[in-house]
Simulated scan of single mutants.
Amino acid sequence: MKVLALLLASLAAVSAQTEPWCRCAAFVTYEHSEIMVFEAPEVTIDSCTDDAKQCKNSCTKELNDFSNNGNLWLVQENGLTVGQNICTYMADHFFYFIHNHRVYGYFEVCGGAWEYTGVASQQLLCCNGGKHEHCISK
């Protein structure tokens, strides 16, 4: 009887899962951590087990479209650069200074590990007090 109850509970948990999904985000890499600096809207995919390529391709397109292939100085519809949008997002989370860091695009399938899309910023990112600035070499 207990086995039957466990089996039914497992079946209910599996059937309660939502549709397969894919997350796309940009990160700045530090020596011991990764910091998310941008997240695109979720992408619906067909399968959590078979569609990593679909997720990667969708995220690559999304991140490249957002930044014109990694251009942090692209002025977006809101009148701010991609870099300024990132610096503003970071300042809103009490992270005011970023100096000489590349921004990298990643994708995540159904809650799995983040994987690199191959997308990277053309320029290094520098935020000074939440303001996007041109980077000066170290």
Rank of each mutant, 00 (worst) to 15 (best):
M1S: 13
M1D: 15
M1V: 04
K2M: 14
L4K: 10
L4D: 06
L4N: 03
L6T: 00
A9I: 03
S10K: 01
S10N: 02
S10C: 12
S10A: 11
A12T: 03
A13Y: 09
V14D: 08
V14R: 13
T18N: 14
C22A: 05
C22G: 05
A25G: 09
A25I: 04
T29V: 06
T29E: 14
H32D: 13
H32G: 05
S33H: 14
V43F: 09
I45A: 12
I45Q: 11
S47F: 02
S47N: 06
T49P: 00
D50F: 11
K53C: 00
C55Q: 05
K56I: 00
N57M: 05
T60K: 15
K61Q: 14
K61N: 14
E62A: 13
E62H: 12
E62D: 13
N64P: 08
N64Q: 14
F66V: 04
L72V: 11
L72E: 06
L74C: 01
V75W: 00
Q76T: 12
N78S: 12
G79I: 05
L80F: 10
T81N: 04
T81G: 04
G83E: 03
Q84H: 08
Y89W: 13
Y89V: 06
M90W: 01
M90S: 02
A91P: 00
F94W: 09
Y96F: 13
Y96L: 13
N100Y: 05
N100P: 03
H101G: 00
R102S: 07
V103H: 02
Y104G: 07
G105Q: 04
G105H: 04
Y106F: 07
C110Q: 06
G111H: 09
G112S: 12
A113T: 08
A113V: 11
W114S: 11
Y116W: 09
V119T: 09
A120N: 13
S121D: 08
Q122K: 10
N128H: 06
N128W: 05
H132R: 03
H132F: 02
S137H: 00
